[in-house]
């Protein structure tokens, strides 16, 4: 990889200031992704992976607030942008696809309305030429008879079709960066495979960088170049996909990999990580995983610093696993 990465997030902190206390949803997260690369953000529910995505999009609502760190996108620090500048970036140079395709399209607006408004929000074109581009966009994601489909409402579409529409909308302005927040989780396995394949292809074709947020390590294994494993608002381990999956260093990553059914022997009970993710509300200092970790020691009451056990790898653990 040459030159600076397209997006580099450095020490990002996003906290919710609720009546019950401060929730550190994203707590010192750093990663980078280059043009044409695919980064996987992996973690359980509540690990802060979606909130990291929303932070990059500038879609954090009160009581949430960015409290620290930098988000450098193509040379400019997004955290310094005003609302109008951030709006011009969204849907244009940075696009996002959401988890549940049943919920992301507005149920009372026609598909053409929802596509055309996105085109005209960023390009000064007539309604007719926007409509022509909308037609092409639907055709590009493999939707048959786009003319007819444009006049339909979302409830006429299946889940997979809706997600294709959402992807078509995200790709309208050839974004440099696409953030996909578990876009295949709500779909059938066969559709999931198709969407994965096509997203990969579209990114390769357009040279867009992709951040794929998921709880499913097996999806990442076949898709991403690099991976960040998140736990309780922090990145606990990162590196190339091959390295992290072949030689996980953090006990949590190890636990995640062991939980994938195909890696276990037949007939044996699945291995699982004991316990549950801790509440992020007033999280005690120290390693947040220590309660569930078989390697934990007294040292873990301190927060482990980020170390670089090998070139291009990061780790936040005192007791790395040696496989």
């Amino acid at each position: 990889m040459s030159g600076p990465p397209l997006l580099s997030v450095d020490g990002l902190r996003m906290h919710f200031f609720t009546k019950a206390g401060v929730v550190k949803a994203v707590d010192d997260v750093s990663f980078a992704v280059g043009r044409g690369r695919i980064l996987g953000l992996v973690g359980e529910s509540g690990s802060g992976k979606s909130m990291t995505g929303y932070s990059v999009m500038g879609l954090i609502d009160p009581p949430g607030r960015l409290v620290g760190g930098r988000i450098v996108f193509d040379g400019q620090d997004l955290t310094r942008l005003d609302a109008a500048a951030w709006r011009r970036l969204r849907g244009n140079r940075i696009a996002m696809i959401f988890q549940d395709p049943m919920m992301t399209l507005n149920p009372v607006l026609r598909i053409d309305t929802q596509i055309v408004e996105t085109i005209r929000a960023h390009a000064d074109v007539s309604h007719e030429s926007a409509l022509a581009r909308a037609r092409e966009a639907l055709a590009r994601v493999g939707i048959a008879s786009p003319d007819e489909r444009l006049r339909a409402y979302p409830h006429h579409f299946s889940g997979g079709m809706r997600q294709r529409v959402a992807i078509a909308i995200a790709l309208l302005h050839h974004p440099d960066l696409i953030i996909a927040d578990e876009p295949t989780t709500a779909l059938d396995v066969t559709i999931q495979g198709q969407i994965l394949f096509e997203m990969q292809k579209l990114c390769r074709e357009t040279g867009a960088a992709l951040i794929w947020i998921t709880h499913d390590l097996s999806v990442i294994a076949g898709l991403a170049d690099e991976v960040c494993v998140m736990y309780a608002g922090r990145v606990v381990e990162s590196g190339t996909v091959a390295e992290v999956i072949e030689r996980p260093l953090h006990p949590y990553t190890r636990g995640l990999i062991d939980s994938v059914p195909s890696r276990n022997e037949r007939g044996r009970p699945l291995r699982q990580i004991p316990g549950m993710t801790p509440s992020l509300l007033e999280l005690a200092p120290g390693c947040p995983f220590r309660e569930r970790c078989s390697h934990a020691s007294a040292a873990c009451a301190e927060s482990p610093a980020v170390t670089e056990p090998a070139p291009g790898r990061c780790l936040r653990c005192f007791h790395p696993v040696h496989a």
Binding site: M57, L59, R87, R88, L89, R90, G91, N92, A95, M96, F98, Q99, D100, M103, T104, L105, N106, P107, V108, L109, E117, T118, A121, H122, A166, I169
Partner: peptide
């Protein structure tokens, strides 16, 4: 989610409120 998606598309606030929210 459709409001979040509308914002992620970069629509101006008045369109998100005046069309996406209001019509629902």
């Amino acid at each position: 989610d459709y409001v979040k998606f509308a914002r992620a598309k970069g629509l101006p606030q008045r369109r998100v409120i005046g069309v996406h929210v209001l019509k629902n």
